[in-house]
Amino acid sequence: MSDTLPILDSADAPHIATNETIINIDDLSFSYDLGKTNTLRNISLEIPKGKVTAFIGPSGCGKSTLLRCLNRMNDLVDTAKVTTGKINILGQDINASDVDAIELRKHVGMVFQKYNPFPKSIYENVAYGLRVQGIKNKSILDQAVEESLQKSALWSEVKDRLNDSALGLSGGQQQRLCIARTIAVKPQIVLMDEPCSALDPIATARIEELIAELQQEFTIVIVTHNMQQATRVSDRTAFFYLGELIEYADTQVIFGNPSKKQTEDYVSGRFG
């Protein structure tokens, strides 16, 4: 599979599969209502670099919330607040006062549950992240657009209609376009919030393939509802329940031999 991948320039490509930790969450509690009730409670977890980590758990367990903490999308909610604990990404506490959330998001990209391309052309969608960084040079943009579309396996399908509206693509294509848009900014981490929940099985399979390819280059954190998907794409899995991290281990362990009763109940389909 990796033979077909474009050879990455080693200078800007992070190393693959070291045991280095890229995200370090330490005793994190988080609240959506200024601390009255905690949606997340005392979460501690280390996410390794260059791997795919899956967050699973029943609805409302806080997995998406945690994901949105990682690029501070929760800032959009006025009453959101980190009550205790820290999140360190690349060794930096991301909630520190000298962190610019905008810079953070350039390093930590995100793909959403429902594909949400802008009502612009395909080209403009991919170029958007670069344009907001002030890049105007056409050739740089062209190159970045092509590269990202190729990495997201969309290039061959859209290369002749880059100026068409992105909204004319099929659902799976739109979601891959969103992935292309995200990686065009060259983030180190890509967060995926149930990226396949709105797609049919075939489109889902293509996205899963894509995740496997992207893993070569990016650290991926994926929230999923679908346990088979977690087993297919992820290296490590974290199981959340009612705002708490129940168990975090290699994926095979979670699905084969979980140490906690709740985990076992969940992965075996007894609730959830």
Partner: peptide, 19 residues
């Protein structure tokens, strides 16, 4: 979703609004 996507790509609030 539009504004969230834009923000997640590292655009500022104002860039999101304008673009």
């Amino acid at each position: 979703a539009f504004s969230e996507a834009s923000l997640a790509l590292g655009a500022s609030k104002l860039q999101t609004v304008i673009r």
